[in-house]
Design a protein around this nucleic acid. Structure first.
Lengths: 373, 373
DNA sequence: CTGAAAGCGCTAACAG
DNA sequence: CTGTTAGCGCTTTCAG
């Protein structure tokens, strides 16, 4: 013992041996007492507990980990933490981990694969129990090899170099339903502003847009597709540009939450009103989407459900369940019909007269689309 | 070596000894080679590096930590991660830590002091280097003792049991400026819906409200103050109640971001328009506040600045700088004047006629309040 | 420049 | 029930 400090103050330099010395017993007895070993004298246990208190003993996780060759961390690697999906994910996974007694390490990759590698390296060195990861598009070979054999769940995105089970939202279905809705209510020039196809999410969502047109036997003008980074500024520029087209779109679908914000800004800037001048379907369902006037029609992700699913997936792998590792889970998005969409004719007819905003917060499950207003 | 697996696949069971055996040298040489020790043969280094690659060696952080009696984690304990302040904080601190080579552990306390204790305990057992903590109001004696002597930053809130330096926003000033503004433009019945005073933030912000009235020599009806949890539902109920008062408020100040959302909902529900029927000043500056029509006047927190300050504070303590530990930093909030506030007379005069929304995203620093529109 | 040896704090046989 | 002993993977003297 290096420091005999004031009582009841935690002192990490105090070891199991110190308390053994203090009590005149052996350190293994102390160890047993602390781990509540079956064959230990109740009296000794009490004394040990007391001494622990008095000396401010704090177990050394590193020593324990070294002995057991097991870490005690769970890693969560997310591309960004401003996104609502990732925000609730962090919350929920952290909560689940706490209940499990395993601290959770949150790392933000900012979609930079070098940062991602760093994080994975650090986590592996710490002998992390498992990782929930949203892979960056450029995920390194090295990163993949580091991840190999570790309990892992791919979250929200999937990467070809990884074989781990995944939990993601069915983005294709989400955009498909949204597009079909617009088609049904008469729109023909529907623009899509989304993420590049290097991310699996980007590719899927775009596919939904294309497929809906194909199914309906409608042409689809490539000039109405704009792919870029998931940053408001990109959508802002893209939408501004779309509006300048000789034959501008009558409806707009956004492929991510951040893009929705950018699109709204662009419309505001251009002085256009939804749904009067243009219909809009956003992505995600931020708390203010329903407060917005008129309520924002959107493709919602069941964020809580996704986070829970990912956490459960990981836990299952950790507890080594039989075929816990199996499968990719694609969670159904939700189509939330509110006020930013209107029939093409309807919008044209009421031109000039201000539409009464619908207060809307009605939700409907995709696909059958039981749409409530 | 337990597993001689395929090349280039990470194998945590491979130790420094395995690679020593593989190369027919001693493990201490390997250790030196890996840590780039000055007196080591360049050729040996190369060979070692190669073998490391081939065998998939991954250093064991626990062993290293045990030897050095130093952990390699930084802890960030936040009450909730939906709040924008905490969201950007997590992002920034994580980023700073990465640059520093220290993984960051994010723990969410949900304002539950038992959870807080758990987190702190786990962190200390892992010999965490330092912690940034937003203390819960009910922070335990035990938690405090666990924290004692550890590099620590109190973030956003301060707790009497803790003596560590703090970084927070000057909430009193923020609400004071906001209240004075309303007073200046003629409001007399100004309601305040905020957090209970058990949190230092709650107490401070309320104090600003009270002080502004005192300075102006105005009475302040206690019935216009509503304190509760920082949850939208509380504000929703509180505002609904305030509106039912015989002499309802003409203006409303919110004491937290979540409460702002709730208040907006209550107004919507009651069919009231800002600023026509009531003026409103929110808290925090979420991205959609400026998109909202009319823009939401609010007390903004320089979130990035705060997060950076906290990270720097901690880093300073970690690098053991002379008097790095000193002082409490209170960051000045920002008063952002947008469209949800209007002079009392003005609002009354235009009664019935719809006010033209100001597009406003003008910002102004408190206190002198160079207010831009 | 390299090897041998000790020891960080803890757990788990194995003897008492 | 308890003490003795060994060893987890690594760094670090101390001798070669």
């Amino acid at each position: 013992m290096r420091k005999t400090s004031k009582l009841t103050v935690a002192d990490p330099s105090v070891t199991i041996k110190d308390i053994a010395g203090h009590l005149g017993i052996s350190h293994s007895t102390v160890s047993r007492a602390l781990s509540d070993h079956p064959y230990t004298n109740a009296e000794t246990k009490a004394k040990v507990r007391q001494a622990v208190e008095k000396l401010g003993y704090v177990p050394n996780a590193a020593a324990r980990s070294l002995r057991s060759d097991k870490g005690s961390l769970v890693g969560l690697i997310l591309p960004d933490i401003h996104n609502e999906l990732f925000t609730v994910t962090a919350q929920i996974v952290s909560h689940r981990c706490l209940k499990n007694g395993t601290p959770m390490v949150l790392a933000v990759s900012e979609d930079d694969s070098a940062a991602e590698l760093n994080h994975v390296t650090a986590l592996r060195q710490a002998r992390t129990l498992g990782i929930i990861l949203t892979p960056t598009p450029g995920l390194t070979e090295k990163t993949a090899s580091l991840l190999h054999g570790l309990p892992l769940v791919q979250y929200s995105r999937r990467h070809p170099k990884l074989s781990a089970p995944s939990v993601s939202v069915d983005g294709e279905r989400g955009v498909l339903v949204a597009t079909e809705h617009l088609l049904q209510i008469g729109h023909r020039r529907i623009a899509y502003v989304g993420m590049e196809s290097d991310k699996s999410t980007g590719a899927e969502r775009l596919a939904g847009y294309v497929k809906a047109h194909q199914k309906a036997g409608e042409d689809n003008d490539p000039a109405l597709r704009r792919l870029g980074t998931s940053h408001p500024d990109f959508a802002r520029a893209a939408v501004a540009d779309l509006l300048n087209l000789p034959d501008p779109p009558t409806a707009l679908i956004l492929g991510s939450n951040a893009l929705t914000v950018g699109a709204l800004k662009a419309l505001r800037h251009a002085g256009l009103e939804t749904p009067h001048d243009i219909s809009l379907i956003g992505w995600g369902d931020s708390s203010w989407f329903s407060l917005w006037r008129p309520g924002i029609t959107t493709i919602g992700m069941p964020t809580v459900e996704m986070a829970e699913a990912a956490a459960s997936q990981l836990m299952r792998q950790l507890s080594n369940e039989p075929d816990g590792a199996a499968g990719h889970v694609a969670i159904e998005p939700t189509f939330v019909l509110r006020g930013t969409t209107a029939p093409l004719e309807g919008a044209r007819r009421t031109k000039g007269s201000r539409r009464r905003a619908r207060s809307g917060s009605g939700k409907a499950r995709a696909p059958g689309s039981r749409l409530t207003t």
